[in-house]
């Protein structure tokens, strides 16, 4: 494997995990009644552990992988002099220090007792924000740069809030059938929908701003790998739209039937899977030249 491919894989795991930790924790911590949140948290426990493990491993690997891509390949990955130069003399090195601090905070929020899910959400949010310290926001100069970074951060956080909350939704859906949780589950899903309006607005606004700042044109030239991958991604999104339409107009009106809830759950899981596929595509073409 080339260092570049390894770095793509590393970023994919890192952002996927951070988005889950942020979205699920923020949702459970602020929007789900605490009894139900504790119950769902228990169910997602293994996923939380896996995500934390991936965040720690990928953060640790990011620096040597960065060294290998910037330097002459794998030989430079663990060279102390190279790592020192990257840390002290490049922007990606400084962004990594921010990322490492956020990871330490996240780790502490897991091991320190009684700090709760909101601390995990905060740690994961810091991790996503650290991702905006480098990246294409660097292409602007002057006053536009901090604005672009803020826009990036809002975009990642609002998008991550939704994508990351999906696994919690999958866990909450069957609780609509359990008399003990029915009320709380309905409340949690209603709040999810309400908060969604704010997140939708933010994602759309920041997404448009991002596109204006970075892409500047529709991705129609499929000769360019970046735009081709983007095209594939849009096709996957069309599948997701089909799934969403079927959920909303076929499954939801039949929610009274026993089999429907199960189908809705599986449709949500399929959406998470497709979401990951799209995140993977973004991880790949995010490293390519857009035009």
């Amino acid at each position: 494997m080339t260092p570049d491919a390894a770095l793509i894989l590393c970023r994919f795991s890192l952002y996927g995990s951070a988005m889950f930790l942020w979205g699920a924790s923020a949702y459970l911590g602020w929007f789900v009644p605490s009894g139900l949140a504790a119950q769902v948290g228990q169910q997602l426990h293994a996923w939380y552990r896996l995500a934390l493990f991936l965040v720690v491993i990928t953060t640790a690997l990011t620096l040597p992988l960065q060294a290998a891509t910037i330097g002459e390949g794998w030989a430079d990955a663990f060279q102390p002099e190279m790592l020192g130069s990257i840390l002290s003399e490049t922007n990606v090195g400084q962004a990594w220090i921010g990322q490492a601090c956020a990871t330490v905070f996240l780790l502490l929020s897991f091991v320190v007792p009684f700090v709760g899910r909101r601390a995990i959400a905060l740690g994961a949010a810091l991790l996503l924000i650290s991702a905006t310290m480098t990246g294409h926001a660097a292409m602007n100069t002057g006053w536009l740069r901090p604005l672009h970074r803020l826009n990036d951060a809002l975009h990642l956080l609002s998008g991550g809030a939704w994508i990351g909350a999906l696994p919690a939704i999958v866990a909450i859906l069957p609780k609509l059938r359990e008399p003990m949780w029915q009320r709380d589950a309905r409340l949690a899903l209603t709040r999810f929908s309400t908060a969604g309006h704010v997140a939708v607005g933010l994602v759309i606004a920041t997404g448009i701003a991002n596109t204006i700042l970075v892409v500047k044109a529709p991705p129609l030239d499929w000769q360019i790998a970046y735009q081709r991958l983007l095209g594939i991604k849009i096709l996957i999104i069309c599948v997701l739209v089909g799934l969403a339409i079927s959920n909303r107009y076929i499954l939801v009106p039949r929610l009274g039937r026993r089999a429907t809830l199960g189908r809705l759950k599986w449709a949500s899981i399929a959406e998470i899977a497709l979401g990951f596929l799209v995140l993977g595509l973004v991880a790949v073409f995010g490293t390519l030249q857009p035009t």
Binding site: H136, W162, F192, A199, I208, V252
Partner: peptide, 20 residues
């Protein structure tokens, strides 16, 4: 709710296209 979060997921994914 479900259709709304799906819609947002889609929008989020579409918009990340700009992250190059």
């Amino acid at each position: 709710t479900h259709s709304r979060f799906t819609a947002l997921l889609l929008v989020a994914l579409l918009c990340t296209a700009g992250r190059a």
